[in-house]
Amino acid sequence: MNAILECNNIKKSFGSKHALTGIDLKVERGRIVGLLGPNGSGKTTLIKLANALLVPTSGEILIDGKKPGVETKKVVSYLPEKTYLNNWMSIQQIIEFFSDFYSDFNSEKAYDMLKRLNLDPKEKLKNLSKGNKEKVQLILVMSREAQLYLLDEPIGGVDPAARDYILETIISNYNENATVIISTHLISDIEKILDDVVFIKDGGIILTSTVDNIRDEKGKSVDALFREVFKC
């Protein structure tokens, strides 16, 4: 099987701003990968490229060997950093929406998770608190049986208990054909569930390694290494 995500010298510029300066990356299936870097390093740009929300300035990005498009959107499940839900639907209606458009969407799973988080499906999205909106978005994303999950700052604005729940959900969702890429700058929380980490700085990759290698060879946690590498 080919790699689920492949980047060949990807560059992306916005006018004079160079967001990605040449990314080469290969991510295999069945891995949980951390895309780690400070704000503005290019993590979100890279993820948007994988989602066909942006087009590369040069270079090639392939999902499951294909260029980003309708076919790849079917197998990619994306959790953006922002809340993107419309405000007139209820939770139930957005679940039906996802179920309608994504053939790999598992409604049962979604309702299960809703129940566990004490969210009422009949509640209107616009009445939810920010934290609950984020939880709903996570549920929608994780209820898809996708091949690639792209989570942009999933634990950012969330309380510690919810963070644990999110990490638990990611682990329990794991299957050896799917890959999860988590972009974040909050590393100590998620380190232990990551297989691999990619350090990205100023639009370029400065390190790729497995978590265990880092701990083995450098005798410190990924979080500690990160602080060292990205010291201001």
Partner: peptide
């Protein structure tokens, strides 16, 4: 609003041309 603001994240990740 639906295509070019935040909802765009929802709409343009749908597997639809």
């Amino acid at each position: 609003t639906n295509l070019l603001s935040e909802e765009g994240y929802l709409m343009f990740t749908l597997p639809v041309e």
